[in-house]
């Protein structure tokens, strides 16, 4: 296996594995947010933006993985 193909595999693995955690985390965040909206529909206006922000922060790990993948590919 030459270095080029190893790079591609590593990049794919980095993003793929790195996306697992945030995927689960965002799912939990969304489910909890929907649960609380179901319990208290009047608060949806407050919950939804907060949910998006927290999901965005959860997403950070996947983004770091993406950055690492880009570094592996191009640097």
């Amino acid at each position: 296996m030459d270095i080029e193909s190893a790079k591609y595999i590593a990049a794919g693995l980095a993003v793929g594995l790195g996306a697992i955690g945030p995927g689960i985390g965002e799912g939990i965040a969304a489910s909890k947010a929907l649960e609380s909206i179901g319990r208290n529909p009047e608060a949806s206006g407050k919950i939804t933006p907060l949910m998006f922000v927290s999901m965005a922060i959860t997403e950070s790990t996947a983004i770091y993985a993406l950055v690492i993948a880009l570094i592996i590919l191009f640097a």
């Binding site: 965005a56 997403e59 950070s60 983004i63 993406l66 950055v67």
Partner: peptide
């Protein structure tokens, strides 16, 4: 530094 990276790569990505 991570703030910069995550904030920019989130949108870009």
């Amino acid at each position: 530094v991570a703030k910069i990276v995550s904030l920019s790569f989130r949108l870009f990505g």
